[in-house]
Design a protein around this nucleic acid. Structure first.
Lengths: 158, 158
DNA sequence: CTTGACTCTGGACTTTACTCCAAGGTTTAT
DNA sequence: ATAAACCTTGGAGTAAAGTCCAGAGTCAAG
């Protein structure tokens, strides 16, 4: 069977069926073709798209921001310079997030280290982690060799 | 002047004044001392704490998760092993987020490269960025050296 | 000592992102 | 061929995270 019903898509993408219709209304998913009966028929690239949305949300992007991300594609109709600028902006934003997460990670690693050494610290060390004024003038130079340790991603429950 | 009023704190931490009271109710900020009149008096470490909350939210953590992060501190009352385990969990979660962001970054960088080379691609390249199958139909759990494969639970529990 | 800015509380309202429901039509398995 | 399990729409309801408001008290400048 070539097409997915909305229920099958929901199951495969691990979202509620209503979420799919909601994303369609919000413009995050383009309206799929329909059978004569009105039933939606999806190609399986819709799975990829919905998963992308899910993950981007876990990374702190709003649905509007995700729509912007999804609109970043090159095609004969879009002007390249425009796309490039918007992509550049997103890249900076993402790099900012990576930096903050790296700081959090580092402080937590230090925390566990101190734990092992039997030290007792009464303040909360993670507090210093994110306390640079982001959105400031400092341009971030990322170090090469970023750490990729975990093969499995964790599902964060809400 | 040694203490900050709630208004001054709100200004310095760049949040709405009501947000501060809301965080206090939610337990993310401890109730500050008060003047005889009832006015809140903050020390300036509250600025740091509120900024941390703000940034953690931008990284996709819920207020409950942020409360957990803030509770990760060593002090004479907490058991070290417990703290360490919770910290380890958070570290994994953070590393997962970093990985996803790195993928997004990479695809966007590739996009701008293609742009520069004058190539035109009609699909949306960012879609592939986050499409590793995180816990699809089968979730693999590595537990104490043993690999367990079990089907995920049905979601439609109307 | 008055005036305007600030703060207090409790509760109501808003926004975002779903999630559920009703009432009906369609598909599919037995 | 009939029931179970789908799907349709529009609209209502929910949870999280604020944000606003009213009515009253407090503070600080002139």
């Amino acid at each position: 069977m070539k097409y997915l019903s909305i229920g099958q898509l929901a199951k495969q993408a691990e979202v509620n069926i209503d979420t799919i219709r909601y994303y369609e209304r919000r413009g995050l998913l383009s309206p799929p073709r329909r059978k004569e009966s009105g039933y939606r028929q999806y190609l399986d690239d819709a799975i990829v798209r919905i998963r992308f949305i899910k993950h981007a949300k876990e990374l702190g992007f709003s649905l509007d921001e995700i729509a912007e991300l999804l609109s970043l594609k090159l095609n004969p109709k879009t002007k390249c310079g425009d796309v490039k600028n918007r992509a550049q902006e997103k890249i900076s934003e993402i790099e900012g997030k990576i930096q903050m997460l790296e700081r959090m990670r580092l402080t937590l690693v230090r925390l566990t280290k101190m734990c092992e050494e039997g030290k007792q610290v009464s303040e909360c060390p993670i507090l210093d982690a994110l306390n640079q004024n982001v959105g400031k003038e400092i341009e971030m130079t990322l170090k090469s060799g970023m750490i990729t340790i975990r093969p499995l991603l964790e599902r964060s429950k809400r």
